[in-house]
């Protein structure tokens, strides 16, 4: 079971500002969904290894070769706010 306070906490972890209506809705819906997950307890998973990748292709490496992107300006232009060749964000360190 998940309560309103936990929903608020999870929203903060996920960096989501929720309205009061959303908090209420998600509390109800998440409880329904978590309840549905309970059916997994019917299965015995003792000594079962997890499958993180359906088809294992781990430790794929390649040479780390430096390449120049063809269109640096297009990348900078995608930013909501920029200052020359920098991405610009609101103040990070509080002054008070």
């Amino acid at each position: 079971m998940i309560d309103r306070e936990q929903v608020r906490k999870v929203a903060h972890l996920a960096r989501l500002e929720l309205s009061t209506a959303e908090e209420e809705m998600f509390t109800t819906q998440l409880n329904g969904i978590l309840d549905y997950f309970e059916q997994l307890s019917e299965l015995d998973v003792t000594n079962v290894e997890p499958t993180f990748r359906a088809i294992d292709a781990s430790n794929i490496t390649r040479q780390d070769v430096l390449e120049t992107h063809s269109d640096r300006e297009a990348i900078l232009e995608s930013a909501p706010d920029r200052d020359g060749e920098f991405f610009k964000v609101p103040q990070i360190i509080a002054t008070d």
Partner: peptide, 24 residues
Amino acid sequence: DGVKYGARAENADNLMEMYTRTRA
């Protein structure tokens, strides 16, 4: 997160507000 690409919420006073409002 509203930094490198995509939309950003306007009028956020600090970085945390920018994140949470942009995503909201």
